[in-house]
Amino acid sequence: MIMAKSILSLVLNNRRRDHAVADNMLLIDYLREVCGLTGTKMGCDGGECGACTVLVDDRPRLSCISLAHSVAGRRVETIEGALSDGRMSRLQRGFHEKLGSQCGYCTPGQIMAAEGLLRRNPNPDDDEIRQGLSGNICRCTGYVKIIESVRSAIEEAAP
């Protein structure tokens, strides 16, 4: 069978993109291999660890179990989109300053899941942070530093 490709149009990190993409391509493969955005990581490879989390219309999405065409017409954001004018986002600064990242492999997913959480709930308590990041597994930090990192980002935003 020869797989026909069809045009996938989306807004990726604030930039309009149009690519010919096969029906069976996963969103993570599209991001990493077609767009070269390798910040998004493949962890468990089956939707069980959250390392591949990106934002689709502001909501967290597991890119390793999503088909690329499922984001047609949507706004997709990856960790590369978190920088603005070369400056880290408040969550990136939080993870950097509070040591929320050790080996770093889960960090892009943690930050995107936290970003999704803060957009729908700008001032979550610790329990809500745990809930919001409950789909993201980290084998290094024990999570305490990750919670502190998110809290630090929230406090930075508070006037």
Partner: peptide, 9 residues
């Protein structure tokens, strides 16, 4: 069910 990211879809 699962985690919040799964429940989104």
């Amino acid at each position: 069910v699962a985690a919040n990211t799964h429940r989104e879809v």
